[in-house]
Amino acid sequence: MLPWFKHKSDNSRCLGIELHNGQAFAILRDPTGVIECCSTQAGSDALAEISQWIEQHQLQHLPLVVSLDHQDYELHLLDAPNVPDHELSDALRFRVKDMITQPIEQKVVQGFRLPADAYRGRMDMAFAAVIDRQRIQQLVDWAQELHLELQEITIPELSILQLVAALEPEASVGVLRLDNKEGVFYLYQDGGLYMTRHIDVGVDDLGLDDVSEGELALETDSRLENLALEIQRSMDYFESQLGMGSVGQIWAMVPDAVEIDAIIPELEAAVNTSIRTLSLDSTFNRMSPPDSLTASLATALGGSLSYELAG
């Protein structure tokens, strides 16, 4: 669903939840922005902890958008079958069945096309998100138990797309998201997702807890070079293979555990592209006192932005 084709809600509030690395991150927003949030602890029963927060704040009967944990789905890039859009997911389901280890009957397949100008318009490609059917049912049952109006189950790639579109960048944007052990680099332009690339470098590798700006250790500097190389390869593919020109800017999402400001100048110099930290506080944060909208809360917010709330 393109971000400007939004669903309308009769409610003035909405819940967004991202499930990420076994944790859950929830935001409550109204038309002004995020007014409450909740982040569960690692190792806890994430849904049970979020349930307590929802009941404590009496948030039942609100519309809800859930963004899946990356561990809960696979994303495949395939040649798009020559079918109408409403038949795309079924057609991709047939193609993807030989690419997964479990029976296709146990999976839900949702397809969405790359923008028509990708690959200079010479190739029609589509993403296929392959999700465990039992996991979907678990989330549906959980929402029903809490009397929530589950509107959509989506994936981070599309939640962050909604977030980027809401900020209305004038050029293509690369979004960098770093977790403890790994990262992801997404490329968006004009309301479309063009590519997503897994990165085998995380904040633990960069030693950010011990780094201050301009004081990178040799090992950290080497890891930073690896990170810059992965980003550069992604941008080169976007420019040469996808035919989309140079990436206008990079937005670095704030990790859930540490700050990354210390590495931004060195990383920016290495990739020769403007990089800024994706700060959402002035645009969306209406919490008092304000909690920082780090990557997982920001992704939960992005999912919820697929719904226009009643004023």
Rank of each mutant, 00 (worst) to 15 (best):
A270C: 06
D236T: 08
N226P: 10
L224T: 05
A262D: 00
A217C: 11
Y194I: 00
L216Y: 09
I199W: 07
G174W: 02
V247S: 14
V175N: 03
L229Q: 15
H198Y: 01
N226I: 12
N272Y: 05
D261S: 09
G243W: 12
I199F: 08
A270P: 01
G174T: 09
P265A: 09
V211L: 07
V271Y: 04
E215W: 10
Q232E: 12
F185Y: 01
W251P: 07
E182Q: 04
A269D: 10
G243C: 00
R197P: 11
Q189W: 02
Q249F: 13
M235K: 12
L187S: 00
Y237M: 03
Q249H: 13
D236G: 09
L216Q: 10
W251V: 07
P265M: 08
S246Q: 14
V184P: 12
P255L: 04
Y237C: 03
R223T: 10
D256N: 13
Y194H: 02
G191E: 02
T196Q: 09
V211C: 07
L218K: 13
G192Y: 01
Y194A: 02
K181D: 11
V254I: 13
S222C: 10
L227T: 10
E239R: 06
L242T: 08
S222W: 12
L178G: 01
A252D: 04
T220W: 11
G248V: 06
A270N: 05
A262Y: 04
G248R: 10
L187T: 00
P255V: 08
E239K: 05
A217N: 11
I199G: 08
W251I: 05
L224R: 04
G191Q: 04
D190M: 08
S222A: 15
H198M: 03
N180E: 15
L227R: 11
E219N: 14
M195H: 05
Y186D: 08
E266Y: 12
A257R: 13
V254E: 09
V258H: 01
R197W: 07
V258M: 04
I263Q: 14
A228I: 04
D190K: 08
G243N: 00
V175K: 06
G207P: 06
G202T: 11
P265Y: 07
R177L: 13
V254P: 11
E219Q: 14
Y186V: 00
G192H: 03
S212I: 11
E182Y: 02
